[in-house]
Write a protein that binds this DNA or RNA. Structure first.
Lengths: 221, 221
DNA sequence: GTCTATAAATCGATAGAC
DNA sequence: GTCTATCGATTTATAGAC
């Protein structure tokens, strides 16, 4: 086992990275950036150490030296991105104006699809294939967060500030529609005739805002 | 090259299968069924001939004998399923009542996600990874169909029979929301706490119907 | 047509020089 | 720390017996 591996295996997530030198952190970041490109396009099995090493501008054993295995790179990527991925939902506030809060959430998620399509595809592929590395976090951390925010939405509905919708399925709808533009961009562009990416997301923003306003505005009684 | 391969390579999609004997067709069907299971879970790269052969109850060379290569099985699967996959949209009729037509389409797509989750995952993975084998059909056959139906929806909107929405993005929304339940079933079940599959789709049906009615009902002027 | 055995290629990971 | 060379395992595909 290498020195870097020993340091990385120190118990506790906090100590994990603090034990690394600046150069070690930078090398690892460099590899993670390259690996994201490769994994997003090729998937875990399709990606090879050779491609990752090539994209990172290093030799194959050098990549292994820093992470121990291809699988470790993949797992590290998923873990390090999860918090970022969930942050838009975390920011949904019970204190704000209901419809505006949800529209802001939709926009943040759509922005995330636009800015981080590789990350979106990484998670999509992982879940699509049964999420063997992630299923614990899905039914733990993620479920807690969703349940908490669903309760907020439920309360808004019951107070008549929002149309009466199942809050869990509403969250699924928001995920589905926004991530669709990142995950299935090839299909979307093929059908729309290859618009500029920026224009596409402007269209999607206008469409989704309009769509959710109509669907969620409380019915006049 | 084998006899089966020779027959399969006869030019023209129609002659392709008619040249095969009944037994040859049955064997090929048997392999395709087994391969769908394996590809849907493991992806193209993750699937191996050994797993496919095992699932089909044959030896590895026997599988190759009928299809020539692993890739050929995968491509054949995608092609043979495309028509089924598009059929719900094809059935959207310009003659029917607008809102009812769209709700019927949503329900058919949702039913398809429920009944054919493996097929859904197969297409999702393919497109997610850039659709190298399918991109021609996406910008050809699929684009034509979508453009045609989008024009119908556009007309309904302009006649005031439907809310004013971008018809292409509406179709994307329907795909995204319905396929989400098949493609990301692991995540959905983790968050909802593993409900029975049938119950989940009943919930989704009620939710989506309600949601689209609200979003698409024409605004009173 | 169907099998066993194996060739040929690929890939993850390691050894060991520097 | 970083490299070249290579091992060992896996996997696609073929050869050849029956």
């Amino acid at each position: 086992m290498t020195m870097v591996e020993k340091a990385a295996m120190e118990k506790g997530a906090d100590s994990k990275k603090s034990k690394l030198t600046r150069i070690q952190r930078e090398k690892r970041e460099q590899i993670l950036r390259a690996a994201l490109d490769v994994f997003a396009i090729e998937g875990l099995r399709g990606a090879t150490l050779a491609k990752i090493a090539d994209a990172a501008g290093m030799s194959k054993p050098h990549v292994v030296y820093y992470f121990g295995s291809k699988d470790a790179i993949y797992t590290d990527l998923l873990e390090s991105l999860l918090e970022t991925w969930l942050s838009p939902l975390r920011e949904l506030s019970a204190e704000g104006e209901p419809l505006a809060e949800i529209l802001t959430y939709v926009r943040r998620k759509l922005r995330m699809s636009q800015d981080m399509p590789r990350e979106s595809k990484l998670f999509a592929t992982e879940i699509l294939h049964g999420a063997p590395r992630t299923v614990d976090q899905l039914s733990g951390e993620l479920k807690s967060l969703v349940d908490e925010k669903a309760a907020v939405i439920e309360k808004w509905s019951s107070e008549g500030k929002l149309a009466n919708v199942d809050p869990h399925h509403l969250i699924f709808s928001i995920w589905a529609m926004t991530q669709h533009y990142a995950d299935f961009d090839v299909q979307v562009c093929a059908i729309l005739g290859q618009p500029r990416a920026e224009q596409l997301f402007d269209e999607a923003d206008a469409y989704l805002t309009d769509f959710f306003v109509r669907a969620l505005r409380p019915t006049v009684e």
